[in-house]
Structure formats: C-alpha cells, structure tokens
Amino acid sequence: MTSLIPAAAVAAIDPRPVGKPGDFDFLTGEWRIHNRFREGDKWIEFAGEATVVAILGGIASVEELRIPARGFSGMGLRLLDVEKKIWSDHWVNAKSGVIGVPGQLGVFEDGVGTFLSAGEGEKGDELYRGVWDRITPTSCRWFQGVSRDGGRTWDDGWFMDWTRAG
C-alpha cells in the first residue's frame, strides 16, 4: 500500500537533533503507576509498578513494567543515538519477548518528550505518539495515542500517572 501520510507528518517523525545523555534520568528508580486505559468505549483504571535503571552513562534507560491486575508485564528500552542526538523508544511484551523495531523516535524539548512512529492500522496509515510530560522529582505522566489524519488530531487512549515509590 502506498503511504498516504502527509509530508508534514513524516517530518514530525524526524525530530530535531537535541537528544542528550541523561534525558531519561528522571525516570530512574521505583514507581507506582495509576493507569487509565480505554477498552472499546469505556475507560478502565488499574494499578501498576515499574523499576527503571539508567545505564551506559545515560544513553540507555531500561524499564520493567508490571501490571499484575492485568497479567501484563514488559520492558521499555530507550536508547540515544549519540551521533544523531535522537532517542528511540522500544517495547518488549513479556509474552512475546520480541522487541518493537524500529521504535518511536523523539527528543525532549521544553520539558516534554514526544516520540512518534508510523504504521498501517486496520483503517490505513496511522501515526503513533508517546508523550512524557508533567515531569517533577517525584512524578511524571506518560500517555499514548494514534492519529489517522497525519497528526492533525490525536486519539489518546492510555494515560499513566507515575509516582515515585518510597
């Protein structure tokens, strides 16, 4: 299928090269997470937890996410391409053990990390977005969404409010 994603949306997947080691250091530690997730036409809420470590001098961040109430766990792997100064955010579901490639590309600007990728959904071309915002020493938020109109509008369907544990 020929891509119908507008050039502006493709450009959005090519972030400005401003990534630097340590951008994900805020996430290092133990967390409790309040999830709000849309299933069909209703929102459900459930607890989760995560352990995050920064390695390789801050150019890598590894997250183990655990959501016992949903029988779900996985690993977030965030890597900085030091030369290009762009982060890639990958996901590994514990049930498959397969890393999501190529991952969402992004950077942090003005205290917000925005990560994008493109793919084909059931209804055609889609953009996927993950955002880290509301970052403080004791909390942060991540949310994800999809756009089917080249990034003009977003349907955000999963919100995670992170609170530092102990």
Rank of each mutant, 00 (worst) to 15 (best):
A50T: 08
W91F: 15
R134T: 06
E39P: 01
T153N: 10
E64H: 15
A9Q: 06
G151R: 06
D155W: 11
H90S: 03
P137A: 08
W132T: 01
I99A: 13
R16C: 02
A60R: 11
L105A: 14
L4S: 12
R70M: 15
E83P: 01
W43T: 12
G97K: 07
L116M: 07
E63G: 01
R148K: 04
I99E: 15
T138N: 13
L65A: 11
D110E: 12
E64S: 09
R38T: 00
F26P: 00
I135E: 07
H90C: 08
G150H: 07
I59K: 12
V92R: 06
L4A: 10
I59R: 14
I67A: 10
D81L: 09
G145D: 02
T136H: 08
E126K: 09
S147N: 02
V92F: 02
T51P: 03
G151F: 00
T114Q: 14
G130N: 11
V146F: 09
I13A: 07
V18N: 10
E126W: 05
E122A: 05
R152I: 04
F24N: 05
W132F: 15
D125I: 00
G19R: 02
P6S: 08
G100S: 15
F143Y: 15
D25E: 12
S3E: 10
P68T: 10
P137T: 07
K85V: 02
A165R: 15
N35D: 05
F108N: 02
V52Q: 04
F24S: 09
T136S: 15
T153Q: 07
G19Q: 09
A12D: 08
G111T: 09
V10F: 01
E45W: 00
F159K: 03
F115Q: 06
R70Q: 13
D23V: 05
F37E: 15
K20Q: 14
G166M: 06
V52Y: 03
R134I: 01
G124Q: 14
L56Q: 14
G113E: 06
F159H: 10
R16V: 10
E30K: 13
M1R: 08
D41E: 13
T153Y: 06
G106W: 03
R66K: 14
I67M: 15
S61E: 12
R152S: 06
G157P: 00
G166L: 04
E45G: 12
D14G: 05
G166V: 04
T114V: 11
G119R: 13
K42F: 00
L80E: 08
V107R: 05
E64C: 01
L127V: 09
V82P: 07
V101F: 08
C140Q: 03
